[in-house]
Design a protein around this nucleic acid. Structure first.
Length: 563
RNA sequence: UGCCGGGUCGUCUAAUGGCAGGACAGCGGCCUUUGGAGCCGUAUGUGGAGGUUCGAGUCCUCCCCCGGCAGCCA
């Protein structure tokens, strides 16, 4: 493979304000030429597409600057964290292709160091044990416009603080009885600096450290230390931590510890879905969806089950860029990213979602003819396959209309249409049941129109897909749509009331061409003219296949009739 | 109404005092045995008012709007 010229590299990799900061740091040797980033999830839920943005941002930077990328679990709250989440997060990060090599870390591995650092602060007179109850602490903190007041315990002696803190660690006190606080400034306009809590007492079993600890560091105390210990150069995080940066700076300066640079960016918001872990958890717990990996969920595992590829998600992360302004990204960008990837790489197949039988009357009963179909017009190396044409077929119900609107290019009574890779047929007769529903079409074919022979001079406007009635395989198809009916459900009072009742439509009698009976899990397919599909990893079984629709194909006809 | 941050096409994102550009979405067309894909074209934007400057999205002043912060969550 040829090396990219610098210009090509710049073109293929969009820059952003964070990369500019790094470029500048490299120029000034601020970190002796090092670039070291990390992704620091809390294992209290599954990762979503917003995390993917952060992962690709951090990993992409490390990769492009020849730096390092760590995966570190921020597991400082035993009450919310679980091993299941750790496992899922590791799987998702790997699936996305973010390589952390041997750098898998846990904040809980640093608990002793954090404790020692806290003792240092106490010895410097910069931290104290406070007996105020939670609501009292809140009260003493003041408000956004009024300064707080100092805790009556603020001026305990160093010896007393040391003793009390050690006894907190030993388990002599109950939850909430005491906390360790930094002694900073109760009148600071930045509320984070009003004697923030460093340690709280939590008698709970931690998924990794078990019952070794009953005091746990708060995020604010722990996070900067974690980055410091790992030698992170650029601590990239989301906007809401901007106000915390002065606190991290204060801690690290007090400790005289290595001091990374924090840079904040705007988190991803996608319309027609929710992105907070709390809300996603609620959807799972209230059974609104089929688990964290429900294909309608914006989780990495949900997108994977839906049929999204890592490449599609990486494309998406690239397309949306990185900035500091709040943004609401249109889900159309995500769909564009996945179509772009799937179009190039999926095998095509014919599948009829809502079958309508047609009989070609001028072929003998039991007629069979082998015809060739290309597997992927975007990729000749994907080759071709054989299809068996017959006198009894099924076409898509939507491809026939008795009273078509102007511009309808498909089958109509007395009209002609091409059957993909087969013949041009003409609809001679429409057969209906007692209630007037069309149940079968009787057609004739043009023998000179066999696909690929070039013998037909005839031009028809429409080409429709079909399956052989005798050979088609019956499958279940699950058609997904946006989870919510409103653009920004999170801002609605009763956000759960805006779930889209049609976000999942199950089609239990779809018919697919025989080759799809061997569909492989993890493979993506394009059902010609209808969309991209993949086997459902949870519910599909041999002999009872279940296909998930990843995304529809663009449909300019559907769009034009809607207007 | 305290502190911090932010406002560029409908959406996302560039332009680092010098032609406001790209992508998606839209619209129009070409092409097509997928109404797919591809190709071509097109409309749309600097929150407002002043100021500095030969020249301002960019610098200054004032205003407006949006977001975050009062967990022993992260």
């Amino acid at each position: 493979m040829a090396e990219n010229t610098p210009e090509e590299k710049n073109e293929s990799k969009k820059s952003n304000f964070i990369r500019e900061i790094i470029d500048e740091d490299l120029k000034t040797s601020k970190w002796e030429g090092r670039v070291h980033t990390r992704f620091p999830p809390e294992p209290n839920g599954y990762l979503h597409i917003g995390h993917a943005k952060s992962i690709m941002l951090n990993y992409g930077i490390a990769r492009d600057y020849n730096g390092k990328f760590n995966l570190r679990f921020d597991d400082t709250n035993p009450e919310k964290e679980e091993q299941e989440y750790v496992d899922s997060i590791i799987a998702d990060v790997k699936w996305l292709g973010a390589e952390y090599e041997d750098r898998l870390f846990f904040a809980s591995d640093y608990f002793q160091q954090m404790y020692d650092y806290a003792v240092d602060l106490i010895k410097k007179g910069a931290a104290y044990v406070c007996d105020l109850k939670a609501d009292e602490i809140r009260e003493y903190r003041g408000t956004l416009t009024a300064p707080g007041k100092e805790s009556p315990y603020r001026n305990r002696t160093i010896e007393e603080n040391l003793d009390l803190f050690e006894r907190m660690k030993k388990g002599e006190f109950d939850n909430g009885e005491k906390v360790l606080r930094a002694k900073i400034d109760m009148a600071s306009p930045n509320l984070n600096l009003r004697d923030p809590i460093m340690y709280r007492i939590v008698h709970a079993e931690h998924h990794r450290t078990g019952n070794v600890w009953c005091i746990y560091p708060t995020y604010d105390w722990a996070h900067g230390i974690e980055d410091s210990i790992e030698g992170i150069t650029h601590s990239i995080c989301t906007l809401e931590f901007e106000n915390h940066r002065p606190l991290y700076d204060w801690y690290l300066d007090q400790l005289g510890a290595y001091h990374p640079q924090q840079i904040e960016f705007a988190r991803l918001n996608l319309n027609y879905t929710v992105m907070s872990k709390r809300k996603l958890l609620q959807l799972v717990q209230e059974g609104k969806v089929d688990g964290w990996d429900d294909p309608r969920m914006p989780t990495i595992s949900g997108l994977r089950r839906r049929g999204y590829t890592p490449e599609a998600i990486r494309n998406f992360a690239e397309i949306i860029g990185v900035a500091k302004r709040d943004a609401m990204t249109d889900i159309a960008l995500l769909e564009y990213a996945v179509r772009e990837d799937l179009n190039k790489h999926t095998l095509r197949a014919m599948a009829v979602l809502k079958p309508l039988k047609i009989v070609i009357t001028d072929f003998p009963d039991g007629y069979e003819e082998e015809i060739e179909a290309v597997n992927n017009p975007e990729d000749p190396s994907a080759g071709t396959r054989k299809l068996i044409f017959g006198n009894e077929l099924y076409i898509e119900e939507a491809d026939f209309m008795e009273n078509p609107p102007k511009g309808f290019h498909r089958l109509v009574p007395g009209g002609e249409v091409r059957l993909r890779y087969g013949y041009i047929i003409k609809c001679e007769e429409v057969i209906k049941d007692e209630s007037g529903n069309v149940v079968e079409l009787r057609c004739t074919h043009d023998p000179d129109s066999r696909s690929g022979t070039g013998t037909s001079k005839k031009k028809v406007k429409g080409t429709i897909h079909w399956v052989n009635a005798k050979l088609a395989v019956r499958v279940e198809a699950r058609l997904y749509d946006r989870l919510f009916m409103v653009e920004d459900p999170a801002t609605e009072e009763n956000w759960l009331e805006h779930l889209n009742p049609d976000s999942l439509v199950i089609v239990s009698n779809a018919l697919v061409e025989p080759s799809l009976a061997d569909a492989k899990s993890g493979m993506n397919y394009q059902f010609e003219r209808t969309g991209y599909f993949c086997l459902d990893s949870k519910n599909s079984k041999p002999g009872a296949l279940v296909f998930n629709r990843t995304v529809t194909l663009k449909d300019s006809w559907a769009k034009s009739i809607k207007n």
